[in-house]
């Protein structure tokens, strides 16, 4: 068996005296899809942020593609092929929709390819195409989320960490984003999905990790929803 693409071993992390994550092991195989589940406050977002380098683990290691990446700056981790689609909205408020898409894509792929990818983004999220000249800061909450997701979805990394994909999105859009996630997976992107809406994540992930108070309560094949609820409730 080949080495996993992402491997967390004995990871601890926290904020000051607060231990958000305790001794977490987690692996994502190349091209695999793993859902990280658990109630709010269980440490899911912290694990996601540790992977992308936004939070430094206090102990343990994170390896990507066989090399230790924990301790590297976030931009270096990104350069190696890990993208983090963050919770909340992250767009340049004072740039237009089009500029928000095209500027980073141009930097990575040149003008011609960036134009193609921008058109793909508009095909995926028609609303963004209708509003390409609008300043991103005046978009609605869910339109801003679509914009921040669009960029990673048209330019898939080797590992995509998606945190709270469904936040603020209309059901119709959530459905479309999940379809696209399945597509980029077929194209070879591995996924680490942090989700509140268990049903969505279970539709795509072949294995799950359930966190409870910062610790791994379960890791393995997806469980039926009633067993999952039991795990979640025990966490309260």
């Amino acid at each position: 068996m080949s080495a996993p693409l992402l491997e967390l071993a004995g990871v601890h992390a926290g904020y000051g005296p607060f231990k958000a994550v305790v001794d977490v092991d987690l692996t994502v195989p190349a091209g695999g899809a793993v859902a990280l589940l658990g109630p709010n406050g269980a440490g899911k977002t912290t694990v996601a942020r540790v992977v992308s380098g936004l939070v430094r683990p206090t102990a343990g290691t994170v390896a990507f593609d066989g090399e230790v990446i924990s301790g590297l700056p976030a931009h270096e981790i990104a350069r190696r092929g890990v993208a983090h689609a963050p919770e909340g909205r992250s767009v340049f408020a004072t740039l237009s929709v089009e500029e928000n898409l095209a500027l980073p894509l141009r930097q990575a792929h040149g003008t011609a390819r960036a134009a193609e990818l921008t058109d793909q983004a508009y095909a995926m999220f028609p609303r963004l195409g209708e509003r390409r000249a609008q300043l991103a800061g005046s978009l609605s909450g869910g339109e801003q989320r679509q914009l921040s997701l669009a960029r990673v979805l048209v330019d898939p990394p080797r590992l995509l960490v998606v945190d709270e994909l469904s936040l603020g999105l209309a059901p119709v859009i959530i459905g479309e984003v999940y379809q696209r996630l399945a597509e980029i997976r077929r194209l070879g992107t591995a996924l680490l999905l942090v989700e509140q809406y268990v049903e969505h994540a279970l539709g795509i992930a072949e294995s799950i990790v359930v966190l409870r108070a910062g610790e791994v309560a379960y890791a393995g094949a997806p469980l039926p929803t009633d067993e999952l609820s039991q795990l979640f409730l025990a966490a309260g």
């Binding site: 709010n40 919770e87 909450g141 709270e164 936040l167 603020g168 509140q196 268990v198 979640f232 309260g236």
Partner: peptide, 11 residues
């Protein structure tokens, strides 16, 4: 305006 966004099922 979206009082439940970001909350998990239990919350």
């Amino acid at each position: 305006d979206e009082p439940f966004s970001g909350l998990d099922r239990i919350e």
